[in-house]
Amino acid sequence: MNHDRYPDDYIAGILNSVKTIALTGASPNPARPSNGVMGYLLSRGYNVIPVNPGQAGKQIQGQLVYARLADIPVPVDMVDVFRASEYLHGVVDEALALALRPKVIWSQLGVRDDAAAAKAEAAGIKIVMDRCPAIEIPRLAA
């Protein structure tokens, strides 16, 4: 897939089908974008599970934080990546190692790694890069 543009129906289909989202790079700091987006997704009815090794065992936005994807005790539909581009490949590898893989890996604004995307897509996982669900949801009225 060409990741320079996404059809609106592709994005809307993802946002309307996922329910449980693992948010990697979650921050307890309300000034950080990951914290605001997490709060927004929670307000829209998504089950959001924060992932941050430095915060594991604590809570962010009232949700228990896990150190890594493999520690989450329930299957996730989507992994939302709030990490720098150089970490996207590692997140893809971590997702591919799960017994129940997510349907989608979504990387936030400015986060892109085409090789990581190709690896995930080859394993049947949908990819969205350089987009924010908190921008796309109101735009598409998802």
Rank of each mutant, 00 (worst) to 15 (best):
residue 33 P to C: 05
residue 27 S to E: 08
residue 49 I to R: 08
residue 119 K to A: 15
residue 62 G to T: 12
residue 34 S to P: 07
residue 97 A to F: 02
residue 102 P to V: 01
residue 115 A to C: 08
residue 109 L to D: 05
residue 44 R to H: 10
residue 107 S to L: 04
residue 120 A to Y: 00
residue 2 N to L: 11
residue 44 R to G: 02
residue 48 V to A: 09
residue 19 K to Q: 13
residue 70 A to N: 05
residue 35 N to I: 02
residue 12 A to G: 00
residue 70 A to Y: 01
residue 82 F to E: 06
residue 29 N to I: 12
residue 135 I to G: 05
residue 4 D to N: 14
residue 13 G to Y: 10
residue 19 K to I: 01
residue 135 I to L: 13
residue 1 M to P: 14
residue 18 V to D: 01
residue 63 Q to W: 01
residue 59 Q to P: 07
residue 111 V to Q: 09
residue 21 I to R: 10
residue 99 A to T: 12
residue 135 I to Y: 03
residue 136 E to K: 07
residue 31 A to N: 14
residue 63 Q to P: 04
residue 117 A to K: 03
residue 142 A to M: 08
residue 88 L to F: 07
residue 139 R to Q: 12
residue 26 A to P: 05
residue 137 I to N: 07
residue 40 Y to T: 10
residue 16 N to P: 08
residue 20 T to N: 14
residue 105 I to W: 02
residue 43 S to H: 00
residue 93 D to N: 13
residue 49 I to V: 15
residue 48 V to Y: 00
residue 120 A to W: 01
residue 74 V to M: 12
residue 12 A to C: 02
residue 91 V to Y: 00
residue 52 N to M: 13
residue 8 D to T: 02
residue 89 H to C: 06
residue 93 D to H: 03
residue 18 V to N: 07
residue 33 P to L: 01
residue 22 A to S: 13
residue 109 L to S: 14
residue 11 I to V: 14
residue 59 Q to R: 12
residue 34 S to F: 06
residue 55 Q to K: 13
residue 137 I to R: 07
residue 44 R to F: 00
residue 74 V to N: 06
residue 6 Y to D: 01
residue 118 A to D: 14
